[in-house]
């Protein structure tokens, strides 16, 4: 086992990285755009930063009708792989609208999928909210105009543009840790937090994403989103739709604290909204209608 001497390590083999990550307080870092912000605002304890950049976990490769995207592939890398990813329209559209070029040049696919919520109560130093280990979801008693539509202990809104696009395209993720690997549906990476597990991502301690795999592409797909200005904002509501034959998969963000797979029969089911966030129902309904029209044969 490695002995941690420094707060920053850059392992060169996956095995070494997973051993390092198995230790308490170790945090994986892809590009660090989310982590650096969290460190700056003092969110979470970071004893050791395990920088994954030297592991050759990046890159996009096609194999047997599938596409495998390495965890540390940057968002810009995705946009540079237009040819290979062209059949996954929603993913390219989502990536192009995510963040800014400056952030996409550094931010990784795994980091984007695991980023912390932008809830202002979670990130603001003036509050310790329920998700952050406190007693109260301040959004529910406070200002939740940008928050989710579900009931629950935490009404934050999931911020990733990539997650709904990948989920609609039926992506799986390959996870690795010192104790072994596993392969799950991306949708199952997310979970509703509980009183004892105040996390929105279902990763074991020390476990990281190794890659994301896209199965055979949908017949058509689209990503639509409503942001706070024309460019460079997190999605207030984002919706990906992908049609596989007759069946359309839809996944939304900005409406729940995890990416939310919509019921095709009743897309707004379970999304009743809170007084200040109910307006998002109108937006979501519009995006559903428009995306269905776009992916229709």
């Amino acid at each position: 086992m490695s002995v941690l001497r420094s707060g920053y390590v850059r392992p060169t083999s996956l095995g070494e990285a997973l051993q390092l990550l198995a230790q308490p307080g170790a945090r994986p870092m892809g590009g660090g755009t989310d982590l650096a912000g969290l460190i700056d605002r003092g969110i979470g304890q970071v004893a050791t930063i395990v920088d994954l950049q030297a592991l050759a976990l990046g890159g996009i490769r096609g194999e047997e009708g599938r596409v495998v995207i390495g965890a540390t592939t940057t968002l810009s890398d995705l946009l540079d792989a237009q040819d290979m990813l062209a059949p996954y329209t929603a993913l390219l559209e989502a990536t192009a609208q995510a963040a800014s070029p400056l952030l996409r040049n550094v931010g990784t696919v795994a980091g984007n999928l695991c980023q912390h919520t932008r809830c202002w109560y979670y990130r603001g130093p003036e509050w310790t909210c329920w998700l952050g280990g406190g007693d109260t979801c301040y959004a529910q008693v406070g200002d939740h105009r940008k928050h989710g539509l579900q009931a629950g202990d935490c009404i934050s809104a999931h911020p990733s543009d990539l997650a709904p696009a990948l989920i609609a395209c039926a992506a799986t993720v390959q996870l690795g840790s010192a104790w072994g690997d596993r392969d799950i549906d991306l949708a199952d990476l997310y979970r509703r937090p509980t009183a004892t597990e105040r996390s929105l991502v279902d990763l074991e301690p020390g476990e990281i994403i190794l890659s994301v795999t896209l199965p055979a592409p949908p017949d058509s797909s689209v990503y639509l989103r409503a942001g706070e200005r024309q460019g460079f904002s997190f999605p207030l509501v984002g919706l990906a739709a992908a049609r596989h034959g007759e069946r359309v998969s839809m996944c939304a963000v900005g409406v729940a604290n995890t990416p939310h797979v919509l019921d095709p029969v009743d897309p707004l089911a379970g999304l009743d909204g809170h007084p200040q966030s109910a307006w998002k129902r109108t937006v979501l309904a519009t995006l559903v209608e428009r995306s269905l029209a776009t992916v229709a044969p």
């Binding site: 660090g32 650096a36 920088d51 400056l102 952030l103 040049n105 550094v106």
Partner: peptide
């Protein structure tokens, strides 16, 4: 913004170590 290997990045969110 600075260039890292020719690509523009936010140097406020990049650890110097990285």
């Amino acid at each position: 913004a600075v260039l890292v290997d020719g690509r523009a990045v936010n140097s406020c969110l990049l650890l110097a170590a990285a």
